[in-house]
Simulated scan of single mutants.
Amino acid sequence: MKNALVYFSLLFFAVSCKDAAAEAPSKVVMMDMAAPVTEEAAPAMEVAASAEAIVVNSPQKTSETKIIKTGNLRFESSDLESSFQTIQKSVTKHKAIIQNDNSGKDDYSVYRNFTIRIPNQDFDAFISEISQGVSHFDRKEISQQDVTEEFIDIEARMNAKKKLEARYLQLLTKANKVSEMLEIEKQLAEIREEIEAKEGQLKYMQSQVSMSTVSIEMYTNNASQSGITVSYGGKIWNEIKSGFNGLSSFLLGIIGVWPFIIIFVLLFIFIKRRFKKKTE
């Protein structure tokens, strides 16, 4: 019986020590929070609070997924104008915008390249419509980039910087010394610059998400549209002209360095005569 009492006493003592240790941190925190805050320590505490805000406002998953869709198409068309009219109808139907439109021709074909910005939700339908009249694509690249996490991360960091900016503005109203005011204003300028940079990133990313980009390259080898002579004799004549132009460029290059050629010739004659006299 005596041994049982001793064992029970030891067990009660161990539990009491454990409870005291568990309560100790909370008491320390209460003492720290109750301690007076001096003016010198206020800025440091504000910065520490802002760092805590960044942790609290860490990126969280949201139901809204942000996808950047892009398309890159290249194909041959027997009639560029007809193909363009078909694409333009789809552009009007889906409320898209033709951003760039470039056309021209080379020695063998006529081409027309343009960039289209189209609402994200109409991207797949638009690609399907303009693909119906194309028998073969030289290139058809469709990509989807999920930028949801990146968008949320930038937004969270921007909000944290805005909270930090608000704290510094409060400190500015309480500052009494010119040196303190200048230091706070310097910090505010840096924070505002970071906020504006992140706002710009978010606007650009949101623009890419809401409006997808489709780049289209069309070309034709139809001689009636290009106005290019594609006969064998024409090709030979083009090569002859190309060779003549190359020869002309070579001769012009020689003319440009004629003083060095003269010096080289005179030096060669001088060395040859000197060698001839020695041999005699």
Rank of each mutant, 00 (worst) to 15 (best):
M1I: 06
K2R: 04
L5R: 11
Y7K: 13
F8P: 01
F8H: 02
F13C: 11
A14Q: 11
A22W: 09
P25S: 05
S26Q: 04
K27P: 01
V29G: 03
M30R: 14
M31K: 14
A34K: 04
A35K: 14
A41E: 14
M45H: 04
E46T: 14
E46L: 06
I54R: 14
I54F: 13
I54M: 12
I54K: 08
V56F: 14
V56Y: 10
Q60T: 00
S63G: 05
S63L: 10
E64H: 12
I67S: 08
I68Q: 09
G71Y: 01
G71I: 07
N72K: 08
F75S: 05
E76L: 01
S78M: 11
D79Q: 12
S82E: 15
T86Q: 12
T86V: 00
Q88E: 11
Q88M: 12
S90Q: 14
V91W: 00
K93F: 06
A96I: 00
I98C: 05
N100G: 08
D101T: 10
S103Y: 11
G104P: 10
D107V: 05
F114V: 09
R117E: 05
N120D: 01
D122Q: 15
F126A: 06
S128A: 12
H136Q: 00
H136T: 00
F137L: 13
R139V: 02
I152T: 12
D153I: 05
E155Y: 03
E155P: 02
R157L: 11
M158A: 09
M158Y: 02
Y168S: 00
Y168D: 03
Q170D: 08
L182S: 15
E185K: 15
K186C: 08
L188C: 01
L188I: 13
L188F: 08
E193G: 08
E193Q: 15
I195F: 03
E196I: 00
E196F: 13
E199A: 05
Q201S: 05
Y204A: 05
M205K: 15
Q206V: 02
Q208L: 10
M211F: 00
S212E: 01
T213S: 11
S215M: 05
Y219D: 02
N222K: 02
Q225G: 04
G233S: 09
G233Y: 13
N245F: 01
G246N: 09
L251P: 07
L251F: 14
L252K: 07
I261P: 03
I262T: 06
I262M: 08
V265R: 06
I269L: 11
I269Q: 10
K272F: 11
R273K: 01
F275E: 10
K277V: 03
T279N: 04
E280Q: 04
E280C: 01
